[in-house]
Amino acid sequence: MAAAVECSFLLALGAAAPAADAAEVKVMSTVALTPTLDEIIPKYEGSTGNKLMVIYSTIAELKKRIDAGETADVMILSRPVLDGLQIQGKIAEGSIVNVGRSYVAVGVRSGAPKPDIRTADKLKTALLAAKSISYADPAKGGASGVYFAKVLDRLGIADQMKSKTTLVPGAEPGQLVAKGEVEMCVAQASEIAAVPGAQVVGPLPGDLNNAIVFAVGVGSMSKDPAAAKSLIELLTGPAGVAVLKSKGMDPA
């Protein structure tokens, strides 16, 4: 299987390789795609000769930078944000493609007992029983952190959770549970699944569940849209989808 995926990578890259001189491709990406891109980047660069310069941050922070005038050849954000940027003329018309879908999930250390979170009441009980928890700081704009803060309010336990909560800038909650620094984390399922030593318990239950569709588009000011499209074709093609699934994300 690994050999087949590797072969499909090379075939896809060989077909997408530009005939012109190698390009430097700037990418602005949500941290949720970090595990996927980290695996794709060296293969893409090695086979095309193109150089990728990737900026990872929260969706809110990246949008703020784009609104302030920064741009990139390739932008990977949530679908609604990219659609809005296309309306503003900052994404090339018709270039947006869905990449994958992830949901806000609970995670614990690999091998640890999985708490029962099948209903809102059971999730509330599990959260109150946890000695410590981590999620993305809502003030930093991380989508999962902003959403989970609202969940805690809905459950009526926001104040009770504060003293045992470690807020982090981005995708670090899974790393903290893997290291044993916190007992439980809440983050995108793809971010938790990508961390050795962390395991996904499951999505938030019932109507507390929240899925995000991530998409990719070509910046309207891209100096090399062909190189940008070659990366998108790889990311959304069979080889890219295989990596995406291995990192805990569902194809969109």
Rank of each mutant, 00 (worst) to 15 (best):
A3L: 14
V5A: 09
V5R: 10
E6K: 12
L11F: 13
L11R: 13
P18G: 15
A23H: 10
E24G: 09
V25P: 15
V31I: 12
I41G: 02
Y44Q: 04
E45S: 06
G46V: 10
V54H: 02
L62Q: 05
K64V: 01
A68N: 08
T71R: 03
M75N: 07
I76Q: 03
S78E: 00
G89Q: 08
G89C: 11
G89I: 14
K90S: 00
G107K: 09
V108P: 13
R118C: 12
T119W: 02
K122T: 12
T125H: 05
L128G: 02
A130V: 01
K131L: 02
Y135C: 08
A136P: 13
S144W: 01
L155F: 05
A158R: 11
K162N: 11
K164T: 07
L176R: 10
V177M: 11
V177Y: 11
C185R: 10
S190Y: 10
I192L: 14
Q199M: 09
V201N: 13
N209F: 03
N209I: 06
N209R: 11
K223Y: 03
K223L: 06
D224N: 12
S230I: 05
I232F: 03
G237I: 00
A242T: 06
V243C: 00
M249S: 05
D250P: 04
